[in-house]
């Protein structure tokens, strides 16, 4: 049955959906194992290319699964992979969000809302660090990320596209200046 790519994708991705605590990055390693080593749907090189495409394209990085689906079974594969990865976890989240939101105004809800806020702030900062680490952890990445964060915080009306464009230009300039990419 797993020979049919559509069924194979579903069988592999639905459990990932429900186990991916902490978001997309937590499934990249097991996804690579399944699709490259076990099923041999894509080569290791292709996987890395698809990963960088999903990273730079809009939307969640987990759209990597969409691309793998597309690679092995075209548009239908892309659709099946997207639904298999995002739908199960979303339904679970819908149930929890519905329950949580119903108690708005109750004392425990107020405490939860206030108490979870700093946890979220810490998690977001930690997530930012892990992305920077994934991007090679070089000084240029740090400067760019922090600079953009501060710039966007101060100049609140500015469209983020301006900042993204500036970041892209900075890295291209760095390439021509010979300081990017940093050789490992």
């Amino acid at each position: 049955m797993r020979d049919n790519p559509l069924i194979g994708l579903t069988v592999i991705l639905v459990p990932f959906s429900l186990l991916s605590i902490g978001g997309g990055p937590s499934i990249f390693a097991p996804l690579q194992r399944e699709t490259v080593d076990v099923m041999q749907w894509v080569t290791a090189r292709e996987f890395i290319d698809l990963f960088s495409i999903a990273r730079v394209a809009p939307g969640p990085g987990a759209m990597l699964a969409t691309l793998i689906g597309w690679k092995i079974a075209g548009w239908l594969g892309a659709l099946v992979a997207t639904l298999a990865l995002f739908l199960p976890a979303s339904i679970l989240c819908m149930v929890v969000a519905r329950f949580y939101d119903r108690y708005r105004g109750h004392q425990w809800h107020t405490a939860l809302e206030k108490g979870l806020a700093p946890i979220a702030v810490g998690l977001v900062m930690a997530g930012a660090i892990s992305i920077i680490r994934l991007s090679g952890n070089s000084a240029l990445v740090w400067v760019c990320a922090l600079g953009a964060g501060i710039w966007l915080s101060i100049w609140r009306k500015l469209h983020p596209f301006v900042v993204l464009f500036a970041g892209a230009s900075l890295f291209v300039a760095a390439e021509f200046a010979g300081i990017w990419p940093v050789s490992q």
Binding site: S52, R55, V56, V121, V124, M125, G127, A128, I131, I132, S135, L140, V141, C144, A145, L146, G147, A148, G149, I150, W151, L152, S153, P160, V163, L164, A166, G167, A168, S169, L170, F171, V172, A174, E175, W180, P181
Partner: peptide, 19 residues
């Protein structure tokens, strides 16, 4: 390099939210 720059700058969107 442009792709790397966009990814690095997008971290700034998240940092703005954290701030």
């Amino acid at each position: 390099s442009a792709m790397d720059g966009i990814a690095a700058t997008a971290v700034g969107m998240v940092l703005r939210m954290a701030f």
